[in-house]
Simulated scan of single mutants.
Amino acid sequence: MDGTSRAAAFFDLDKTIIATSSATAFSRPFLAEGLLTRRAMLRGAYAQLVFLMGGADEAQTERLRAQLSRMVTGWDTAQVGAIIRQTLHESIDPTVYAEAVTLIGEHHAAGRDVVVVSASGAELVRPIAELVGADDVIASRMEVVDGRYTGHIDRYVYGQEKADAIAELAAERGYELADCYAYSDSITDTPMLEVVGHAFVVNPNGALRRLADERGWGALRFERPVSLRPFATRRSRLAAAGIVGLVVLAAALGWLLGRRHRASGV
């Protein structure tokens, strides 16, 4: 990337950054708070199983979307936001791929922005993106009236819509798409992978691997879901060390200036 152009790395969320589905990861806390019934939770668990086994085609994914839309109709947005914030580490933290966290750090070190792109709602995606250190999100938007979800989706960021949203953000931010990167585990994200200059498939199944071979895309294996707490602790320690260093430096400068002041007799 030259000194005048900007670039970004676009990451799919489910099974790319995290080893699960963000849409169903909060099922237990939603059940505990009375937003979900056990029957709805079981249906969600089955959909999650199909998803994790790689058996969710476009039609099944669309049915899952419709089911989730019906399920959240009438939910209070403030309550949903509070549950997500309170249970984020419990629900998501242990499922984050270490390889994804490392890649995000490498892109930041190279001066690229990191954007999480997901068909899940922005209410779910943004806290997770912040957790892993991403700069922004592209996510679906649910319609809200009087503080409650209506069940209508204002924008469903899926398939071609992901690529369109990436192109829109690139035009807005001045990203050179030829210099941008994209990562996904799903063949339904083919448009997203095609719109950038550097595409990578993650843990690809047979069809996605064949497509990657045909297009010359890279292939990555993410295998280590880890807790982010050690990463956060390490960052905190580094920050603390930096503060201590500044304090020591300030004290040393103060001592040196005081010594010169006394030596001058002023």
Score class of each variant (00 low, 15 high):
residue 234 R to P: 00
residue 33 E to M: 07
residue 226 V to A: 10
residue 223 E to L: 11
residue 114 V to F: 09
residue 7 A to H: 11
residue 38 R to D: 15
residue 61 T to F: 06
residue 171 A to Y: 02
residue 227 S to A: 13
residue 245 G to H: 05
residue 246 L to N: 05
residue 63 R to C: 06
residue 178 A to Q: 08
residue 131 L to I: 05
residue 76 D to E: 15
residue 107 H to E: 01
residue 48 Q to H: 15
residue 227 S to P: 05
residue 95 T to N: 13
residue 116 V to I: 15
residue 132 V to F: 04
residue 154 D to L: 15
residue 139 A to I: 05
residue 55 G to P: 01
residue 12 D to Q: 06
residue 23 A to H: 10
residue 250 A to F: 09
residue 71 M to P: 07
residue 129 A to Q: 03
residue 12 D to L: 06
residue 129 A to W: 03
residue 240 A to M: 03
residue 251 A to G: 08
residue 187 I to S: 14
residue 39 R to T: 15
residue 260 R to P: 03
residue 10 F to D: 12
residue 39 R to Y: 13
residue 80 V to Y: 11
residue 125 V to P: 10
residue 128 I to N: 07
residue 30 F to K: 03
residue 222 F to Q: 01
residue 4 T to P: 00
residue 49 L to T: 13
residue 35 L to V: 12
residue 59 A to Q: 09
residue 58 E to P: 02
residue 3 G to H: 13
residue 155 R to C: 00
residue 134 A to V: 07
residue 94 P to R: 09
residue 140 S to N: 05
residue 86 Q to F: 00
residue 253 L to I: 14
residue 235 R to K: 12
residue 53 M to N: 14
residue 59 A to H: 12
residue 117 V to M: 11
residue 125 V to K: 04
residue 186 S to Q: 10
residue 42 L to R: 14
residue 147 G to K: 10
residue 165 A to C: 05
residue 200 F to M: 05
